[in-house]
Design a protein around this nucleic acid. Structure first.
Length: 875
DNA sequence: TGAATCACG
DNA sequence: ACGTACGTGATTCAG
């Protein structure tokens, strides 16, 4: 039996629009915009792969006027003109389709929809399976048992499939009622009026009762609600006309037939040459035609006898390892590039060369690297103390734009228009297949990377100057990298025996909870599988469904807490999850990464990752060790000083983000509150609830605290309502009252959003930048998210600036005072040290002093501290 | 490999 | 009408 015939129909204009707006305005080296072409090509390739059509056609709109304008001359009125940046791309999209041998069609006076509708109906009669692709939900009216309508969702290659069943589930309507819905609610993008005051909800409600617009209008008197009745009566004709406008014509006088649309596959040469012309490397690779990147000529010399002409001042240095974790990855070679050329040195030759080691340790011989922390730490594990690191490509590019994540030298070089080095992935492979290449390949690769670092030096420093960020890079990030490297190398001592004991206890508890849960469920299942758990809770036990996820029922803690008094199994599940997390992530996870001999863990702080300027910590993550719940907090008992007679010392900023907000917003009320060192949540409660200090109840303070969190995150009534479990209206009222009391904050929130719109980015106190292109998005969600980002980033980012500065000052101070104390960790607003008992009293004086004076704000900074025999006790 | 969940500030 | 609180990383399941 032959496969069924399958026709794919595409709304060309709609998808081109989608692609254009979904992607940033890319352009190729000739200055031609390519984002819509690129997006269209991606969708096209995906459609062909996924659907494997036997027949295919892309329909386009022709001209400005259509037969619909006879009905309503304002049809599609008020619509913005197609941006010229998009228009100029349309010819290429047609060329692309021709290269793929996909038929395309347009017809004067008709829209793409009508062509598609007509062909879909015809094809279905002829026994085709039909798939329609568009970005316009109107097309869903064409859905039948044999015609599926795929509408693009966020992103461009993600689609939602509308079958009659899906439409029923989503709207409770039949596909043919979609036009009735449009008739009632209208469509602002097409300027279809509908009935004023009727939105989607009302339209669906009416159609469930009356089926069609016509039937509804005949029975207006049966409609509940006086206002609604009047509106319907008044706009009767408009509703009928709107329905007519929204109706896709299935009898368009086209001169093609589905039989003519056989898809024969692409002219691959044409596709390749078009992609090459447009510079679509990624798509070429997907075609299996990825060009070998041609790198510039470069002679790399292998050196066995290291001489002084290699060991110069201002030399680019590559310290190469195979693997991410530089604490344990093997060194595989070195390269140096300077005015005398590019040189490769094997690991053995370098580490055995006194000349090389002396040079590496010579502070006066400046080195340029990519990822200074990695180079320094990696060499330190081989007892080489790398000094004189003067330039770091990774940090420079991170400061210029934290959005870009560069995994290697080649990716940065490419961004700056250089084609000197190959990517690490190309040379080493990735994942399990990662392996060292031949020595000759390695020689070339490392030499090229070193040459790229040299070439990038001036370019990136220029970019920093241009942004007025040279100071941030040179005086903050670069020195901090070395400090972080020392902290990582030093590591934190872990009390393994203690961890083991906790593990045994947790395992026992876990077993008990597991048995209880299985008994209460009446069967055994995997509690760790949200899918299986969902079936047990919501199907077998019939508990109410509170929230759904993309894939099924949500079983998250906030959902379970709402079900707590409905069934005793819930409490056990919550406990099981809590204990399970402690066991797997903190006890087992921590033991796995603790070094067997030294009993230390060596985290890696990622200094070039977060969008706000914070650090992150991995392998293990020591920035998320439990503290909020007592059972978890006990994990901290396992973090202990590395030497006998020493203690842990922790110091944290109190309310640093709100203090930063007070400073940058210059809100008088907030500044006053912090100047007088008031309890900020109590103060907020007093102002929001209009009560005196004595009248503030714990509940009021709790709510005020949530409001303060909301303010820092970029407030939204919805978010606050979720957090407090109140209605959106109530949340909105809280926010309103807050902003009335703190007018300066209100002005800041408004101004910062404006600034982001105007400049395209926001900045922190130390001129760190975050670009926020989405702030101009027409999509409500994306735009709202961008606005919150604009509000939050200067706050979170400035707090990050402050503590980074404090770390530099602190290490300097420890050195000046000749103290043995070590800085071990940073957890966003706190610093953790270990120190001899005798030094604790000194730390209690100097740590708060240094931290509080890291940066001068218009409000005082406040630091709390504590010490004890373990991290747990330093509270 | 992505989604869900949960740990932290 | 829309339907998310900001910033991270690790573990587990399931396709």
């Amino acid at each position: 039996m032959t496969d069924k015939k399958k026709l794919v129909l595409v709304d060309g204009n709609s998808l081109a629009y989608r692609a254009f707006f979904a992607l940033p305005l890319l352009s190729n080296d000739k200055g031609v915009h390519t984002n819509a072409i690129y997006g269209f090509a991606m969708i096209l390739m995906k459609m062909l792969e996924d659907e494997k059509p036997t027949h295919m056609l892309v329909a386009f709109d022709a001209g400005k006027t259509t037969f619909r304008h006879e009905t309503f001359k304002e049809y599609k009125g008020g619509r913005q003109k197609t941006p010229p940046e998009l228009s100029e791309q349309m010819p290429f999209i047609r060329e692309l389709l021709d290269a793929y041998q996909v038929k395309r069609y347009e017809l004067p006076q008709y829209e793409a929809d009508d062509i598609i509708g007509t062909l879909a109906v015809e094809a279905e009669k002829d026994g085709f399976e039909v798939k329609i692709f568009s970005g316009d939900k109107d097309l869903t009216q064409l859905s039948t048992d044999h015609t599926t309508v795929a509408i693009t969702k966020k992103g461009i290659t993600e689609v939602e499939y509308y079958t009659p069943a899906h439409i029923e589930e989503k709207y409770g309507l039949r596909p043919d009622q979609i036009i009735d819905m449009k008739g009632l609610m209208g469509d602002s993008s097409d300027n279809i009026p509908g009935v004023p005051g009727v939105g989607e909800k009302t339209a669906i409600k009416l159609l469930k009762q009356f089926q069609t617009v016509e039937n509804l209008l005949e029975h207006i008197d049966e409609v509940s609600g006086k206002k609604l009745k009047e509106k319907l009566e008044e706009h009767k004709e408009q509703a009928v006309m709107s329905k007519k406008l929204a109706t896709i014509l299935v009898e368009t006088p086209i001169d093609v037939s589905s039989k003519d649309l056989a898809y024969e596959g692409p002219y691959i040469d044409q596709v390749i040459s078009l992609y090459k012309e447009l510079g679509f490397q990624t798509l070429l690779e997907r075609l299996g035609e990825g060009e070998q990147v041609e790198v510039e000529e470069l002679e790399v010399t292998k050196i066995t006898d290291i001489t002084d002409d290699m060991l110069t001042d201002h030399a680019a240095l590559v310290v190469e390892q195979l693997g991410d974790n530089y604490h344990e990855a093997d060194l595989i070679g070195f390269a140096i590039h300077n005015e005398n050329g590019a040189f490769f040195i094997t690991k053995e030759d370098a580490l055995q060369s006194e000349a090389f080691k002396l040079w590496a340790q010579d502070e006066t011989k400046k080195k340029w690297v990519f990822d200074s922390k990695r180079a320094v730490v990696a060499l330190r594990w081989h007892d080489v103390d790398l000094k004189g690191v003067d330039y770091d490509v990774l940090l420079a590019t991170y400061v210029v734009n934290p959005q870009k994540s560069y995994e290697d030298v080649a990716s940065v070089a490419k961004e700056y228009g250089l084609n000197i080095a190959l990517s690490d992935e190309k040379v080493y492979g990735k994942g399990a297949k990662q392996a060292a290449p031949t020595e000759d390949e390695l020689k070339d690769h490392l030499g090229r990377k070193a040459a790229a670092i040299s070439a990038l030096h001036d370019l990136t420093l220029e970019a920093l100057e241009k942004n007025d960020q040279h100071e941030l890079y040179e005086d903050l990030e670069l020195p901090l990298a070395l400090i972080l490297g020392e902290m990582e190398s030093l590591g934190v001592k872990v009390d393994i025996e203690r961890l083991e004991r906790m593990g045994e206890e947790l395992t026992k508890k876990l077993k008990e909870y597991e048995e209880t849960i299985h008994r209460l469920a009446g069967e055994t299942f995997n509690i760790n599988s949200p899918k299986q758990l969902g079936v047990i809770l919501f199907e077998k036990l019939g508990l109410p469904i509170i929230k759904k996820t993309k894939t099924g029922y949500s079983t998250s803690a906030d959902v379970l807490e709402k079900l707590e008094d409905k069934h005793e199994i819930i409490r056990s599940i919550l406990h099981y999850r809590q204990i399970g997390k402690l066991q797997s992530t903190y006890v087992e996870g921590l033991m796995k990464v603790t070094h067997k001999n030294t009993h230390k863990v060596h985290t890696r702080f990622n200094q070039a990752l977060t969008q706000t300027g914070r650090l992150s910590s991995t392998d293990p993550n020591l920035q998320n060790i439990p503290i909020r719940l007592e059972e978890g907090r006990k994990i901290r008992q396992a973090f202990v000083p590395s030497k006998e007679g020493w203690l842990m010392f922790a110091a944290d900023y109190s309310q640093i983000e709100l203090r930063v907000l007070a400073h940058i917003s210059q809100d008088e009320n907030l500044i006053e509150a912090f100047t007088q060192d008031m309890d900020i949540h109590t103060k907020t409660a007093m102002d929001v609830f209009h009560v005196s200090e004595e009248e503030v109840t714990p509940s009021m303070r709790r709510q005020a605290k949530a409001v303060n969190f909301g303010i820092v995150y970029g407030i939204s009534d919805y978010g606050l309502s979720q957090n407090l479990g109140i209605t959106r209206k109530e949340a909105a009222a809280f926010i309103e009252r807050y902003l009335t009391s703190f007018k300066g904050v209100k002005t800041y929130m408004e101004d910062i959003v404006q600034e982001a719109k105007q400049k395209g980015y926001v900045t922190t106190l130390l001129k760190r930048r975050r670009y926020i292109p989405d702030i101009t998005s027409r999509n409500f969600n994306i735009k709202s998210f961008a606005e919150r980002t604009a509000m939050n980033t200067p706050i979170q980012g400035s707090a990050a600036d402050i503590i980074k500065k404090a770390m530099i000052d602190m290490v300097q101070k420890l050195k000046e005072e000749n103290l043995q104390a070590n800085l071990l960790l940073q957890v966003h607003d706190e610093l953790i040290f270990e120190a001899p008992k005798e030094e604790i009293a000194i730390l209690e004086k100097i740590v708060p002093e240094v931290m509080e004076n890291a940066l001068q704000l218009d409000v005082p900074l406040k630091v709390d501290f504590a010490s004890g025999p373990s991290w747990y006790d330093a509270k």
